[in-house]
């Protein structure tokens, strides 16, 4: 079933640079965790944490 492989350089020429970048799943993981962590979770938690306490 095996067949001869093409050189990596030849393959890379057929893939656009940006696609080569997003082919890295760990970069995708970083973006996917960082974006909502900053804009949703941290920002939201800070807003709740800074709600002033009601005076007695």
């Amino acid at each position: 079933m095996a067949e001869e492989n093409k050189p990596d350089e030849q393959e890379d020429e057929n893939i656009s640079p940006w696609q080569q970048i997003i082919d890295n799943p760990f970069l995708l993981l970083f973006i996917c965790v960082a974006m909502p962590t900053v804009f949703y979770t941290l920002w939201g938690v800070m807003e709740v944490a800074t709600i002033p306490t009601a005076p007695y």
Binding site: I31, C32, M35, P36, F39, Y40, G44, V48, I51
Partner: peptide, 17 residues
């Protein structure tokens, strides 16, 4: 990847604070 999870906020539209 950039934006989808941010939509979680729409559950909190009426939350005070």
């Amino acid at each position: 990847i950039f934006f989808l999870q941010l939509a979680s906020a729409h559950h909190l539209m009426t939350d005070p604070g």
